[in-house]
Nucleic acid binder design. Sequence first.
RNA 1: GGGGCGGUAGCUCAAUUGGUUAGAGUACCGGCUUGUCACGCCGGUGGUUGCGGGUUCGAUUCCCGUCCGCCUCGCCA
Length: 600
Amino acid sequence: MLKRTNMCGSLRTGHVGQTVTVCGWINTYRDQGRGLIFTDLRDREGLCQVVFDLEQAPADLVGLAKTLRREYVIAVTGTVRIRAGGANPKLATGEVEIVAEKLELLNASEAPPILPDDHEAEKINEETRLKYRYIDLRRPRMQHILHTRSRITKFARDYFSGNGFMEIETPLLIKTTPEGARDFIVPARLHPGKWYALPQSPQLFKQILMVAGCDRYLQICKCMRDEDPRADRQAEFTQIDLEMSFVEREDVMEMMTGFVRGLWSELFNYDIGTVQRMTYWDAMERYGIDRPDTRYGLEITDVSDIAANTEFAVFKDALGLTKAGRKGVVKAIRIPTPNEKLTRKVLDGYSEFAKTFKAGGVPFTKLGANGFETGVAKFCEPVKAELIAKLGLVPGDIIVFAADHYDIATKTLGELRQKIARDLDIVPAGKWNFLWVVDFPMFDWDDDNKRWVALHHPFTSPNPDQFGILESDPGVCLSAGYDLVLNGSEVAGGSIRIHNMKVQEAVFRLIGLTDDDAKMKFGFLLDALRLGAPPHGGVAFGLDRLVMHIVGTDNIRDVIAFPKTQSGMDLMTEAPGPVDPEQLVETHVRSTAVVEPAKH
RNA sequence: GGGGCGGUAGCUCAAUUGGUUAGAGUACCGGCUUGUCACGCCGGUGGUUGCGGGUUCGAUUCCCGUCCGCCUCGCCA
């Protein structure tokens, strides 16, 4: 086999005159007849034109070249020269070409069902691309994403290793844990009727590693949660998982800020500046979401007090609501000019959008030169002065309201705010707004089951100044959790953990785990906390989402080499599939699924 | 589990009110072509209209069911 000396995509004018051997796939094939053939050869670094010229090469070489087709795998030895026919500015290697002297066909290819072409790929069904993933991954764009992902994990290892973090693997076959997402489960052959679970995260193991004196831990690990996927969510995903001993909240945030600062510097030569802080409640009030996108305004204002003085039944009814101890609210977004894109039809459509979040609709109006003009103008007119003062309105502004239970009104405007920004096209490109969200509540009230649930996870510590109210006022108690938000997306989340058994037991009690339950399910953790657990805390970065931001895609499948579809299938391998009945017997499993008999 | 959109040639799409032999581009195959680079020119092959059922003289088209893909609500400590 001809031995490669250079990568196709790396050749430049500096290589002119050199004899090189390149290997790769035939990207395109242009036969000019009578012994002049051009091919663009592709490897992971790019394309380079190879020319087979009768005047320069023996006839048998040209003869073999005649048989080449798309996606054939070849090795070529030849001399690099300035292109005789003029440069192609579309290629990085466009100034040069290789004049082939030796050609080795390494492998032919059947006619490929799809071609690895970035322009084509945007038009081809994702379903087809996923089935032939190995062809799709040959595309320059996909190679760029895989390479970028690799650079990110390498940077993470370098940065954290340089800061004293040790890479430690934790088990994949673990015990099922209550709370949280649905577990994937694995039958235990050696223990009939018992099951392992796949980890939703290495959370407990990394805490125990701190108890074990490892001080600083890093792992780039797969996590599995058996829940329905979304555009930015897969059942199987990757975390950059971290934990540190003898630290407080500030120490962890500083370390993690340093990581993203270094990463953005490395990848983009971009200074992320000072990362702002915002409390959870501030985020909810002003942005209606715990991961605000601060790249644009359109902040939310509570106008309940003003709405109470209107005669609008929708407002009045909402203000009379109560749920989980919270009164209903009326909130508003002021949309300044230019807002002409928000036509009557678009604004009416927002009510349909709002209904997906269980809101009745989103009333709106517009301030003209002489008062409110459309929509719910007549109800707003009597409180015009107050609205103008509170929202800072000027003529031309559109105001959109949500009136409902606190959580519904908040979420509706939080989501609508992002939609409006997209509709107005005011989301700035090329801007990286990092934000730490802190002071989360410890618990959320589950009205259906009448109990507290941990907002983050039940190992999150209250903030040091909050221990006093943990049990007396759990709904108010704030945690030592923190989320790193980038452009409205949570890229990392973590907390200082509970390292005191008594506190941990109190939290378990509050979320309705009896002492016996806690012992059975988390006994090993409680034991560990009793046996010399240092103060510790950590973070997990969502690697997939981080890569999505960095390469600029809104599809998580783009950043995973072998992703699954929305129904959890791998279209290439056709997993999941049936197993041999013998495997079921061995693992003591009997399926209750009704399987269609095979057709014949 | 709910809502929305989609599935026709290898790929991307078209097909009038339900009506003749389901078309086009591209890919592929054959021929021609010496500076192309989305090469060009000529010719050709290629169809379980996702699958199953129903209505009808006749279904890509209408109805029912089902499978698959995408977006989304719920869910995702």
